[in-house]
Nucleic acid binder design. Structure first.
Length: 154
DNA sequence: GCCAACGTTGGC
DNA sequence: GCCAACGTTGGC
């Protein structure tokens, strides 16, 4: 049984187009520095889980593509890179504090924006729509996944 | 730029 | 363990 996820990325850092341009349309999901999001990757993500690629902190926030989890969790190398904005001096190599998974974009879609998501009956309790939600990775219920993928097909 | 919401830090 | 201060996220 596959799980489904919504993963936020700032397009100024890694957009869906950037990911599509990468080899195999696959990018390492660097920079997650929240324990709950990390734990999702570590404990619950499996290869082939479905991913809604979401653009945040931009002019048109919303879902912009369908992707898949392409690896199990492994250490995020940016935590040890002093030059990286994601450098974490408190993280020791054993055990590494921060993990990532690889994400492969399967297809870019139209932008399914927040207003449209909010206006869609049945999506009221989609986690990303909840007030104050700042988690960069959230689980998506199967019924939400099905409804959203259907909306993106048109 | 504003600000609500939430996570983390650190003194006690 | 409490909780105030502070930092970050992210829509608007």
């Amino acid at each position: 049984m596959k799980n489904h996820w919504l993963m936020k990325s700032e397009p100024a850092e890694v957009s869906v187009d950037d990911a599509l341009a990468a080899p195999d349309a696959t990018v390492p999901w660097t920079g997650v520095r929240n324990y709950q999001a990390r734990n999702f990757m570590r404990d619950q993500m499996r290869v082939d889980d479905g991913v809604l690629f979401y653009h945040s902190s931009c002019a048109e926030p919303g879902i912009v593509g369908i992707a898949r989890v392409a690896s199990t969790a492994y250490p995020d190398p940016t935590q040890f890179d002093r030059k990286s904005p994601y450098y974490d001096p408190a993280s020791q190599p054993e055990p590494p504090r921060w993990l990532l998974v690889d994400v492969q974009v399967l297809r870019k879609t139209r932008t399914l924006g927040l207003a449209e998501l909010r206006a869609t009956p049945g999506l009221e309790d989609l986690l990303v729509l909840r007030k104050g939600n700042r988690l960069s990775i959230t689980p998506v219920q199967a019924r939400h996944w099905t409804a959203i993928v259907k909306m993106l097909e048109r």
